[in-house]
């Protein structure tokens, strides 16, 4: 039995309709970029789920590691002054 080298993995993002962001929907294998788009159409948009598709080679994505989640995201935790509720404004001040 010889295991053939696999086609590269692509991550697929679909824009559901105009005005919305592309959202990750899953992944698939394809030999090249064009095939990735064709397969993405067949696999992820059989029922008008999208008006636009992005296919991105999975090995080109840079991701944060779950192990560094504390050092990476903790600094935002104590900056409460970044939120509007931090500021006490009298109730009778309008439109704020």
């Amino acid at each position: 039995m010889t295991v053939q080298p696999e086609w590269p993995l692509y991550e697929i993002f679909v824009r559901g309709k105009r005005g919305l962001n592309h959202v990750h929907v899953g992944s698939l294998h394809a030999a090249d970029d064009e095939m990735a788009l064709r397969h993405a159409r067949d696999v992820y948009t059989r029922r008008n789920e999208g008006v636009s598709i992005w296919a991105v080679r999975a090995d080109l994505i840079v991701a944060s590691s779950p192990d560094e989640k504390d050092p990476l995201f903790a600094p935002a935790g104590d900056k409460v002054y970044r939120h509007p509720t931090f500021y006490a404004i009298p109730d009778d001040v309008p439109h704020m």
């Binding site: 053939q4 080298p5 086609w7 030999a31 090249d32 095939m35």
Partner: peptide, 16 residues
């Protein structure tokens, strides 16, 4: 289907 997968791989390598 093996020959189809092989042909697509060969085509992709040629285009790259």
């Amino acid at each position: 289907g093996a020959w189809v997968r092989e042909a697509a791989t060969a085509f992709a390598a040629k285009e790259a």
